[in-house]
Design a protein around this nucleic acid. Structure first.
Lengths: 180, 180, 180, 180
DNA sequence: GATGAATGAGCGTTCATTCAT
DNA sequence: GATGAATGAACGCTCATTCAT
């Protein structure tokens, strides 16, 4: 999965042929197919793994007792820092999100109401308490997080050099975008 | 180029073989290669064309005499409405942005200082006047526009049903994100 | 199609990879796919072609005015001689018949009542006239023709050396098998 | 061997990968290779086993004291009934006969003069007594038995519904084909 | 200038066979 | 003796690109 992630990150799905994944992983092609039914399967599982890692990262030092705003800032900052510190992970994430895989995955999230992640829980709590704008959850999530990922991308590609202070101010901007 | 855009929008770059583009365009493959050196060339020119169309759309009814805030709201709304009304165009845009083409294109923009578009001009004006946060231009642009495109995507994929009123409130959120 | 037939005849369907067919035909793989959608398609069309050739062979010097018995003997002899004189054709035929292709093809024949060939017409005429045993058409066909093909096979593989005289006596045996 | 036979019968040699055979047999792939040197070896031995079962079936109630005609009718009927009652066995037989395995096997039979089976003995006796046509043994065998197997196939594939009476009349046809 | 047949490297996937455990 | 993970050559098929017509 590491090999797959790196190659997809570097060259996109098309630039990650199974033979190359195998070579980088130091195994034969056949071996991959012992653990993953298809290339799609490999990609999807790799993504699930990555998502799990990110969520577990967010849970570290999570400000349980603090107001919702602080929780959001923690999550957004953590996400941004994670992406910046692991460019491969971010780039894979991006490829995944803007592919049929990602669309299907999100569709399941949105319509399946799989609101089990801390992010979704936090936002629903915020909506109930009325401290964020009265907009659909999906819209709030985009207002809040799409800049985070976009900034990570710009940093990784060298379009900006983000530092802790700027990150702090930026995610506060994200909060203002949704806060009532 | 229309044929290419539609096919890329529907199926991604891989789902748009030159033969299929030719067929949809009602010409032969050879003819495409007379006007575009490579497939990449076709894609890049198609994107340039699309970008031009979007900018010209923004210039319609542009509130020249109004404050910067209004100008921004006009631009953001126009962009969102354009994407929503032309899903193919949006989807092509998305494919392009998250591909090596898009990265190269943006790199040229950022480092080439090709700040000729109304958007870049507007933001530089806003920075000079100090009415937006003191953050790098690139960061401001992401805070302001990445949610717009993300929302367009969600609407097109059916994850939300945006109406004029929601769009207005959402782009105001975008403004708050960057405004001092 | 000739290349495909030869290779299938020599090595079976598995021994006839598209790359090898292409090589023997003196074209590239891609070229085959311009004329045949899939390998299956190539095989099926090759068979149809062969069948047409055999039927047209049977029509030569067809004893129109003679009794049914003579017509049958002509057909059976022609088939046997054709197979013997074109071992590749026979071997391809055999491979085809004993494969899913052949089963599907026969199913269509039997249930689709596609009784347009001279053979089916002849047998139905014979059944109506009551000069053959009162058995299902399918059974009569097997009694009459399966030995013909089996003998062709044995000759081609060198298990017997058939001559005109033996062939005559053998197909008379086939006739006795079905004649009342 | 049972697992191999079933899978080959159902899907042909290609549809019977060793891993699948192993799984169906409830053993590991390695274990198969302990008892059979290669896949070919497994197939050939499985065939030999089947052939033995069929011969032993023919010997049951064999009309030792009756004329040759009755012996033939018994053998042919038994073969047909065996195939019909065990479609898997028949289908494996068919796959085998029309493959390189089958050709090699028959070649050995014909040229090795391995005439030990009751069938070969019966026919040689009949030839010596002059009660069958004066044709090569191989030809007589095809005239007599190829329709039997072909009919079994048609029955199994649902092209005819054979009953005891029809079977009786059909094998009498086979006898007439060879009888002087 | 336009055509589209031809090319062939490359892709995802399979499977007979091996061998360390 | 039994296991099953590992191997990698081979397969059917695709598609960007070329070039004779």
């Amino acid at each position: 999965m590491t090999a797959a992630m790196e190659l997809v990150a570097e060259n996109g799905f098309h630039g990650a042929p199974m033979a190359m994944v195998a070579e980088r992983a130091g195994v034969s092609v056949g071996t991959i197919y012992r653990y993953f039914e298809t290339k799609d399967d490999l990609i999807v599982e790799t993504y699930a793994d990555l998502e799990r890692r990110i969520y577990s990262c967010m849970l570290e030092k999570f400000p349980d007792k603090r107001p919702i705003r602080d929780k959001f800032l923690h999550i957004a900052k953590t996400l941004l820092l994670y992406c910046i510190s692991r460019p491969m992970d971010y780039k894979f994430l991006e490829q995944f999100h803007h592919s049929p895989y990602g669309t299907a995955h999100k569709r399941e999230r949105v319509f399946g109401k799989k609101c089990d992640s801390i992010v979704w829980k936090l936002f629903q709590e915020a909506m109930v308490e009325g401290i964020v704008e009265d907009l659909p959850l999906v819209v709030l999530l985009e207002l809040a997080f799409s800049p985070v990922l976009a900034m990570a991308r710009d940093h990784i590609l060298g379009f900006v050099e983000l530092d802790e202070e700027m990150i702090g101010r930026a995610v506060e901007g994200c909060w203002r975008a949704i806060a009532r």
